[in-house]
Design a protein around this nucleic acid. Structure first.
Lengths: 214, 214
DNA sequence: ACATCTGTATACTGACAAGTATAGGACTTA
DNA sequence: TAAGTCCTATACTTGTCAGTATACAGATGT
């Protein structure tokens, strides 16, 4: 190694493209941290550019506009969740077991930059088209989770109820992690995830003996 | 009635003050709806003014600046929650019973304009001073809820665990209601609240028989 | 009648930040 | 070494609002 003998221009082009991708990613990483900390509107692209030792036009060389940057951040977060959800859905175990695993992965993602961004970004911050795609992706995830809940209700591992409402309640608790989790605070992402999931799975009563409300 | 005989200027001043208060409230009500729908930054005070058939300087006659308006909206929401929490805390019943009642009231508030505003407003949208008060109020509420959780753990009506994390998980699910509840959709605030609370209290398993994790 | 206070409008300033026009340096390929 | 392409910077335009200076109308109190 070290010789880097190159004959074909192909390899070169590929390499250049890879570098371009790396720079795009760097922008996204810098941007998402600003967005999470200060919010989308309060973050200027000059800030982002400066933090990367470049200027604004450079960023515009990689992205069409500010909205695209936000959307990509959100999309990355949502894709992580969807992937985790899909993986878990199609694996073995009872509905409850699958749902528990899904929630745990979901919770961990919520402690990461791009996951946080999903929760912290409101619909109206995205462009019209971005908003539609955002909603579609969220809905897709919601349906996967709901399906797992329904599997659990069918196989008896999860109590009966309104699956839609139950899904919203569970994912709500998980989404909210992104609003209070502090990486510098106590608890690793995994510990936090386990604690949350345990509360959601077990409910509040100490062990058995729940009456009230059929 | 109808004669409106007035002799003392006292009554007059008082009345004027009441009217001033009513107008302030009207501004807050108009503003909070814009904030919830479009977000704080995307709402211009011209929008708010126009919707009230006045102009911007009129609004500045009642509020020092835009930040104050947002803060008042958030404060109203947080005060509702705190009041509900305090009322419930100091009443009878087991910890679990009290917590259940608290969560129900909390959930209902989250479906209302000012409650929604609390969840939809991020720290960084408030002024520095507003942010501090915001956090203080939220912390106060958090501590009340946590105390009720601990009462429940002590009296045996709630299973043992990390009260802090449990509180975050529960209130997270409730807070998130403000992000998905649709007043025009199916389900009254009370129905939604009951469903969420039921999920949180009961957990997922169908009835008894929970093992795993002490 | 006169001085004042309250509420409102018209018309402006000032700041900030998104996005762009333009140029030039560096690398690629021939 | 020349043509073309990619990447980046300087310096600008532009739109949008928050916030304000000023004026005026009507009610209040003397």
């Amino acid at each position: 190694m070290g010789s880097t003998a190159r004959q074909s221009p192909w390899r070169k082009a590929e390499e250049r493209e890879r570098e371009r991708g790396a720079k795009r990613e760097a922008v996204l990483h810098a941007a998402v941290q600003f967005f999470n900390e200060r919010g989308f509107h309060a973050t200027s692209l000059d800030d982002v550019a400066t933090s990367l030792n470049v200027t604004k036009p450079t960023i515009y060389h990689y992205f069409a506009n500010k909205d695209e940057i936000l959307f990509e951040c959100v999309r990355l977060g949502l894709e992580s969740i969807r992937q985790a959800a899909e993986t878990v859905e199609s694996r073995g175990g009872s509905g409850l077991e699958r749902l528990t695993a899904l929630m745990r992965d979901y919770a961990v993602i919520m402690t990461k930059d791009f996951g946080m961004c999903v929760t912290r970004t409101a619909d109206h911050e995205l462009s019209i088209e971005g908003r539609a795609k955002f909603r579609a992706l969220k809905r897709e995830i919601d349906l996967i989770v709901r399906r797992v809940v329904e599997v659990g209700m069918a196989d008896g591992s999860i109590g009966h109820g309104n699956a839609r409402m139950m899904t919203f309640t569970l994912t709500g608790a998980l989404n909210w992690i992104a609003r209070w989790y502090d990486p510098d605070g106590s608890g690793t992402p995994e510990e936090v995830a386990d604690a949350c999931v345990a509360t959601l799975v077990n409910g509040l009563a100490p062990r058995a003996s729940r009456k009230k409300k059929a």
